[in-house]
Computed example of a mutant assay.
Amino acid sequence: MVRIGVTGRARLRPSAHKVIVRDLKRLLKGYSGVHGLTCLAEGADRLFAEAVLACKGSFEAVLPVPEISAEPEEDPKLRALLRFASDVTKITVPGPPEASYEAASQEVVRRSDVLVAVWDGDDEGRRGGTAETVAFAREQGKEIQVVWPGGRS
């Protein structure tokens, strides 16, 4: 079983959702048995979880829980996906909210054999974001697969 983590854009055009899920399913079907790892953030992370489930795979959630935020389970869409998670790890790091997002994303990378980046290749971004997570995965020697509508820009 291959452990595949995900990182990606939170804000995606709704018109791109079907294309991204299709491309994720195509990628996942290329592996024999899939176990996903996701922070279940809005956008790419949730689309990835849907694709994993559609491919009869399993996934675990690594949730960033900033000190100042409400419990993540208050989000109905997140709560629905969490019912399918084989395991849930909550990560809280003191400091700004981005510190928890960075720590959770790095934990996804550490637990993964492969990282899927739903990403346009833009190296700009914030702490714990896609570009930083891809850079961390490269430092760790992880295989990285990029999925983006129309290819990598």
Rank of each mutant, 00 (worst) to 15 (best):
M1K: 11
R3K: 15
I4M: 12
I4S: 11
G8N: 03
G8I: 12
R9Y: 09
L12C: 05
R13W: 05
P14C: 05
S15E: 15
A16P: 00
A16V: 11
I20N: 01
S32D: 15
G33K: 06
H35N: 13
H35Y: 05
H35V: 10
G36F: 01
L37V: 15
L40Q: 06
A41C: 00
A41F: 12
E42C: 01
G43A: 06
G43R: 11
F48K: 06
F48T: 00
F48E: 05
V52T: 01
V52L: 08
A54V: 03
C55T: 13
K56V: 06
F59P: 04
F59Y: 13
V62N: 05
P64E: 07
V65C: 08
P72R: 11
P72N: 08
D75N: 13
L78T: 01
R79I: 03
F84C: 11
D87T: 02
T89R: 14
K90C: 12
T92C: 11
P96C: 07
A99V: 07
E102L: 15
S105R: 09
Q106T: 01
R111Y: 03
S112I: 04
S112C: 11
A117Q: 12
V118R: 03
E124L: 14
G125K: 10
R126Y: 12
G128L: 11
G128T: 11
G129M: 09
T130A: 04
T130I: 10
E132N: 00
T133N: 04
F136G: 01
I144G: 14
Q145R: 15
V146S: 03
V146E: 02
W148Y: 11
